[in-house]
Design a protein around this nucleic acid. Structure first.
Lengths: 371, 371
DNA sequence: TCAATAAATGACACCGGTTTCCTAAAGGGG
DNA sequence: CCCCTTTAGGAAACCGGTGTCATTTATTGA
């Protein structure tokens, strides 16, 4: 059976090295009409495909010389392993999914960038999946998404990440996932948490230090965890500076520009009129700008405004908006790194919680109150 | 060899239907510890895997009853074909790539949404790839991107789409692609063109009709085809209304907010000061707003401003910005549909050019000049 | 009645990798 | 000098689908 292999073994080093020279010429001459496969490489190198496979996968049990020869051929004929075949044998797709229903485009693009930075290093690619929690197909869509391409892992951003049913679906599917949220909702291994409390507290301190006492607050929608975090931290920090936020000075918005306008209109027609408004995100802060301008209230002379997110609009507005920076790209990178480690080390690791901290960025829209 | 198959054939209908009942129970009882494969389905249905394959692929040569039985089992055990195995056999990945270096996040997210709408219908998924034309690895990155997951097709958005070397790489790879651009740079089958001329001409007409004569223009960077289109069309349409754009009233920006500020500063300190400024995109228009406000020029009383893109910022600004809407989502959908047709019909079709037209949206920032 | 034809299905190789198991040769110690 | 270990590499099965071609059965026309 295997006796015929023996005679071929004589003087392996020289024999192979010499063969290569010829082979190289062959390779250049040939010009295959199809992408080269591992078999082509094996044939040209006069080795078995398994040895080529070993080289590809960095196995240490390959002679240095053999490795060099094979790598040379791979380079020359431009061989790239078929991801399908690889995936089939490995039971892996080297694909990560990103599930989002966040309307903030800049946030999504930043997350994508961060995720991809980590993916690139590990040889993964990213498949995106916008979705809609209000749709009746939401859960089924997500399921199909994971199954259709057999994703190795999924990253879910808020607010979808805060949907327990979605997480259940992912868990049932046996699909590894990492969730982004402002609070820890899961085992540490499945979460990347961003600390909104820090930023909100800094805003409270900032406003207090400037001398504001009549402060308005526009909260986010209560279904968002971040809305709670920002609100509680802000209120708590104000209180610790001896300032109590009266209930009528709080309005709940929807994290949208329009809701910011509505809430601002209510706040700015109250007596006493607040000298500062903290909106829970920049979109709503932009709504406050528009309303103030419409009402003839000068920013920042008559009204200090602070936002949250540090989205591009913060610098586009005039005067530029004091806000809190949420490092979305880092968030994406951390999530992807976490996911990839778990996929590669092939089982649940009890990782420590990772997260990023938000910090205030002071710009032109916040000044001491008049008088 | 095949004689053993004969006896099993007796009374196929009843036999199979009866078997199913049992099988159904088995399936529920079993709970496999691995995802079910086509073999599991075949075994439970007492058919060959080939027949299951036929059902999956909607082959017409399957008995209606058999099909029903197999579909029932597929449903029950939750079988989903492995994309890796499918891809390996089909030589397809069912993956589309999106290559972009466009800094406009909203544009990218909209494109993604449109592309995915088309993908969903055809069973494709989308892999994203932000890139940087200025990087020395740009072309190699793109190549790796296509090869690593063996993408079936790639959609390239501007300005990367206007890079001829990138296209050459894709062509060499034998990878189907569709480019988005403001001008046709390629065979019709490879392009989706958006008509910026229409929108720019409408702006010219609008400004002329309002009575503006001293008009400033901020062009986009010359490496963008869209910049040329917008400029030429605007200048041409003004001329046809008897208005000539003097050279000192034209500045070239970089499609960024900051460049908008710089150009606006130059335009607004000239004599005679323009009564209207058309910026080639909304970002730069936002820069004009900021500059005008800084200089104490009232918008729109002293200065009419018009942008291009209808990005979210257009409505966030105060007063809201007259601009031109570029239907990015439709653009993405068209590109994906085109690509998918070519992939599925398995060879270059000489399609007609597809495209979308931009239209002006009038808001509050454009009014007749004072006096 | 008997091919000839069509419909439904199966057997088997194949896609391009990996894993498992095995062999051969070289080096090292007693 | 022999046995054992280590190193290098190969053969064949396998991953989960699809293509090709053959086979079986039912239907049809002469």
């Amino acid at each position: 059976m295997t006796q015929d292999a023996a005679p071929r073994k004589g003087r392996p080093r020289r024999g192979r090295a010499a063969a290569i020279q010829t082979v190289a010429v062959e390779a250049v001459t040939w010009t295959l009409d199809r992408p080269p496969t591992i078999n082509d490489v094996a044939r040209l190198a006069h080795v078995s495909k398994k040895t080529v496979s070993r080289v590809i996968n960095q196995s240490p049990f390959v002679n240095e010389e053999t490795r060099t020869i094979i790598n040379g051929i791979i380079e020359q004929i431009g061989y790239v392993p078929s991801p399908q075949a690889r995936g089939l044998a490995f039971q892996r797709s080297f694909l990560l999914g990103l599930v989002y229903d966040n309307p903030n485009a800049q946030f999504i693009v930043n997350i994508q960038e961060g995720v991809l930075a980590a993916c690139r290093l590990a040889g993964f690619e990213l498949v995106v999946h916008p979705c809609d929690q209000k749709s009746p197909h939401f859960l089924n869509d997500a399921k199909q998404f994971v199954q259709r391409q057999n994703l190795d892992g999924v990253i879910v951003v808020p607010p979808a990440s805060e949907n327990p049913q979605l997480v259940e679906v992912l868990r049932d599917l046996g699909c590894r996932y990492v969730r982004l949220s402002a609070v820890s909702l899961d085992e540490a291994a499945n979460m990347v948490v961003y600390n909104d409390r820090q930023g909100a507290a800094e805003v409270a301190e900032h406003l207090a230090a400037l001398g504001h006492r009549d402060i308005g607050f526009i909260a986010g929608p209560s279904r968002h965890r971040s809305a709670h975090e920002r609100r509680e931290s802000f209120v708590g920090a104000l209180k610790s500076h001896g300032i109590t936020l009266r209930p009528e000075m709080v309005e709940e918005g929807a994290y949208t520009f329009e809701s910011g306008e509505v809430c601002a209109t209510r706040l700015l027609t109250r007596e006493p009129r607040p000298t500062a408004i903290f909106a829970s995100n920049d979109e709503m802060a932009a709504g406050v700008y528009k309303t103030a301008q419409r009402l003839g209230i000068s920013i920042p002379r008559d009204l200090t405004i602070v936002g949250f997110d540090d989205s591009p609009i913060a610098t586009r507005l005039w005067p530029s908006l004091t806000t809190v920076r949420l490092p979305a790209k880092d968030l994406g990178r951390l999530a992807a790194e976490k996911l990839i480690i778990r996929i590669s080390s092939d089982e649940e690791e009890g990782h420590t919680a990772t997260g990023v901290v938000s910090r205030m960025v002071v710009r032109e829209s916040s000044v001491p109150p008049r008088g």
